[in-house]
Design a protein around this nucleic acid. Structure first.
Lengths: 219, 219
DNA sequence: ATAGAATATGACCAGTTAGTCACATGACCG
DNA sequence: CGGTCATGTGACTAACTGGTCATATTCTAT
């Protein structure tokens, strides 16, 4: 946890600090991310950093916690389609929200992605910080789908939740490849290249796979 | 490419070098992996390393190439089930081979995984080295499945190949969680904890999802 | 035995890192 | 004004990094 000093900081300074720290930790993995670089970019003294945080790891775990909270906040901020209507519409919406989050908060998304799939010297502490994991959330939604009779009840929920979570988290990588987007420009907040129609088309295709699998449809 | 000197090395020494280098690069990301650590473990002089390779990146790209080749060799070394019989049996076999490779060559697998999903200062050169990517291979197999009339022809092949590749590559992570395996012991080559029956059960469930998706089966 | 090439060595360099600490500055309060 | 406490500072440490290079050793072929 950050020291009290950090929270006493004028908001502008605190925001600027987080901005820069997120930038640093989003682009490189934990070991490579550099406190020295952060303070250099911010033009503050090295000592100041250690007034705000215990150490590097303290900052990193805080950033993860922040990113995870922000993602949950983001997903909850927009109303889902009528949940009663169709489980699959809901899942597609979830997928879409994941991608939108990626585009709107690319750095936060990177941090989460790294924390989930990367190497970390302290996975356990990290997982604690991401209490409400999206995987648990997906599992809940799946159970609702089963209750509503839309989903095959014989599925291994844990397995499917894992796979869906995996797909959701990695989907933007596919989009970037498929639509030949420039990740650099996206990272810099330039969305002019986004073709929302095309993206929605890919969503629909992805949902077809999730819904019916590969097998030839029986007509 | 390694310098000629490296290939002139007595086989035992060359193997030992690769062993140690793989260990180092499997465990940490590119920036964190340390040449100094490698030569220290091998008890050879720093200068010797630079007789074998141009630089760090030269070694890394070589390791990736090696790992990718080894994976292809491994998959091709065991005969698949009758390819004419069922596309899905074939795909399940492919998934199984992926997992078996993970268990038998955990370090090689880590390197490939890192190369595909991690951060890299030179993605392009890396992708060139992994010419025959498993994703292309999966796409071929899918096309055969369509030709055989087993697979829905309306699918977006590129998308599905991407998702299948993703699942195959990450599946062992799920297995480890699901079967509560100890990754540390696996890394050290201790497979006594493996329950092949249980693993096969998870495969089957995963293939059900891949085959029919989430939707409730029509009976 | 000897020349010449191939290989091995480790001190050294310039650069980086996380973290510390004695001190300076600033803000608020009586 | 003075005093006290929070905040800011940057030189410094010890440890590390990738890479170089002059020198030493070992191998090979005559």
């Amino acid at each position: 946890m950050p020291k009290p000093t950090f929270f006493n900081l004028p908001e502008a300074k605190r925001k600027a600090f987080l901005e820069t720290a997120l930038e640093e930790f989003a682009g490189r993995d934990y070991e490579s991310a550099s406190i020295s670089q952060i303070v250099a970019k911010l033009k503050i003294a090295k000592g100041s950093f250690y007034q705000y945080f215990e150490d590097k790891r303290d900052l990193y775990l805080y950033l993860i916690e922040l990113a995870a909270q922000e993602r949950i906040r983001f997903v909850k901020s927009l109303p889902p389609p009528d949940p009663q209507k169709s489980f699959f519409a809901y899942t597609e919406w979830l997928l879409e929200m994941g991608v939108r989050f990626t585009f709107e908060y690319p750095r936060l998304n990177q941090i989460i992605y790294r924390a989930m799939f990367g190497t970390l010297p302290f996975r356990d502490e990290m997982l604690q910080r991401m209490k409400e994991s999206s995987q648990d959330y997906i599992r809940q939604v799946l159970m609702q789908g089963i209750a509503a009779g839309e989903i095959e009840p014989d599925l291994d929920l844990e397995l499917v939740a894992y796979l869906l979570n995996l797909i959701t988290n990695d989907f933007n990588n596919f989009l970037i490849k498929k639509l030949e987007l420039d990740p650099q420009r996206l990272m810099e907040g330039d969305y002019s290249q986004l073709d929302l129609e095309a993206i929605r088309g890919v969503f629909t295709k992805a949902m077809e796979f999730v819904r019916y699998g590969l097998a030839k449809r029986r007509v």
